[in-house]
Design a protein around this nucleic acid. Structure first.
Lengths: 334, 334
DNA sequence: CTGTTAGCGCTTTCAA
DNA sequence: TTGAAAGCGCTAACAG
């Protein structure tokens, strides 16, 4: 490990040509005779030459790398989004720099700064926790950017979204059809754009049906099993009249399931539970979770496609792609 | 988006000093007067100057970035390892490039090549599927490398391991204590080093107890729920006499649970099931999984610590760190 | 078709 | 304490 690097100069010398000719060969340009190209490539291969992406980046001002910012890599939601991003990026010859923000706005800004210094060609920013102004200027400082699960109303950036309101609405309607009337909500992080819209959709459906709802039966929580367990306990303890709980995501819903078990409330007989995302776990817990399915992989893939369009100048406008969640009915809320 | 970049030159001009002086200020070197440093930093900040990691990398031959290679980001095991890596790397000022191999050796080599071209300072390589020779030369081409879940007997690289044999042994002993005598194994990917060692440990414990075991009650499988389901069905169908199944990991074990359910075999009454890793899911399925807990986060963190030691020349020798798995007894194999 | 020259933005000498 | 010159490895623009 750690021997000298083989440079384009070394290859040029060994092949008896100029650096530029080597460059033409390895980049498959056509101002070069087939014979020399072949010879150069052979020499390069023998020497195990690897063109430096760093030097190339400095020369071309582009790095063929993309930043991906998520709040938590260990969240199955982002794991799938990440795969979608990776797949499209890799196919187009780009590398992905993955960054974690831990739901923290400061950390998010630090991470975006680091990506900027690394000259990534663009950024996929998921579930940003920045406020409007900070987000706006952060996005403006990147050469290209696509938001996921978040929107800038002015249209300053591409956005790939799910119709959170529709999801919330469908969940509410489904519960009402089942005869439920008193609802609790575990609303997730207060800084989450999606969380607010899901709640809004849920409220809208209740209002439509002329049903009263008290917001003191709502609890924010971290988007984790632990968060759902704790806030779920609190909610159900304070409001034993609740017969259905709509959760920010499936992890929270699993926590809610545990809270029910701990309090001796049967699911779905006493309390129905609905999650969001349809992560693989949702089908595996007992009772299995009713949830709003989100095309996570597509979210990442589509975001990356849009990003590459912008990076490679194939588009001027800022697109907005909305995926509609699909209610998956399972045992926790039949 | 996409305005001109502010360079060190711009800052130098604006501050009325040389580029070198700006460099000294931003890198906190001490051959500079406090007054100029302060002034330069103020100007740099006003201009929102961001030093280019690319140019710096070319000049210094180091990029302050690390590669992380895993077989699947969406696997909760690697998600936690990734967090461990990220945490240590970030604290030391390094960026992490995450790469997926999809359990494919060719893809793994491609990914390592890409990292080499990007001049990462070192690589954390998890669960490599390369054969000994390929792995050896791949490692030799990186400036520094740490293997996770894999070992090079010659000691050509740092390795962070779990004691897979001990895990397999403990699982077998636990099942025998419960009176089980006829075992099936879902052994995971054939190319997995850990898989072979887990199976070996399991075998060893049976031999120790003088128990016969037929290897035709063993099935390899992809390390996923689907893989466990399919191979589990096949195994239990062909060998109804099996009363306990030891699985490569928890995902496979969950698949096995589903296979049992499908075949009407009760767990643990008819068939006991043991997994490996103790991913969060293990405690959440019904019946909850007995499994060997592996300190995934520590695995990643420790690997990165070793890697940084090598990158920053704090060590010469190749360390080998072994974590011992801990048997967590739950409902699937009491 | 091939080579030469210049320069990407930074750090590393070495002088002043 | 500061600055000037050179170079990291590559590509872009131009000449031949």
């Amino acid at each position: 490990m750690g021997r000298k690097r083989v440079t384009i100069e070394d290859v040029a010398r060994a092949a008896g040509v100029s650096r530029q000719t080597v460059s033409r060969a390895i980049n498959d340009l056509d101002e070069i005779s087939p014979a020399t190209r072949e010879r150069v490539l052979r020499v390069a291969k023998e020497m195990r030459y690897r063109p430096s992406a760093i030097a190339r980046g400095l020369a071309t001002q582009r790095t063929r790398s993309l930043g991906l910012v998520v709040t938590d890599v260990a969240n199955p939601f982002f794991a799938d989004v990440t795969r979608g991003v990776e797949q499209v990026a890799y196919a187009a010859g780009y590398t992905v720099l993955l960054c974690n923000t831990d739901e923290d706005a400061e950390r998010e800004e630090a991470v975006l700064r680091a990506l900027e210094e690394r000259w990534v060609d663009g950024v996929v920013l998921c579930s940003s926790r920045l406020d409007r102004d900070a987000l706006c200027s952060a996005v403006a400082r990147q050469p290209a950017a696509v938001l996921v699960n978040r929107q800038l109303e002015g249209g300053e950036a591409h956005a790939v979204l799910i119709d959170d309101e529709a999801g919330g609405r469908e969940a509410a309607r489904h519960l009402m059809r089942d005869g439920r009337r008193v609802f609790g909500l575990l609303t997730g992080p207060v800084t989450s754009y999606g969380a607010r819209r899901r709640t809004a959709g849920f409220h809208a459906a209740l209002a439509e049906a002329g049903l009263a709802h008290e917001t003191d039966r709502e609890r924010p929580c971290p988007p984790t099993v632990a968060g759902g367990l704790e806030s779920g306990r609190d909610l159900l303890g304070a409001h034993p009249e609740v017969t259905a709980v709509f959760c920010f995501n499936d992890l929270v819903a699993v926590g809610a399931l545990q809270a029910c078990a701990g309090l001796g409330r049967r699911v779905p007989d006493d309390v129905a539970v609905i999650g969001f995302d349809d992560i693989p776990l949702a089908a595996l817990v007992t009772p299995s979770l009713t949830t709003c399915r989100v095309p996570r992989h597509k979210l990442g893939a589509e975001a990356t496609r849009l990003l590459l369009d912008e990076v490679e100048d194939r588009t001027d406008e800022h697109a907005e792609v909305v995926f509609r969640p699909e209610l998956i009915v399972r045992a926790s809320a039949p």
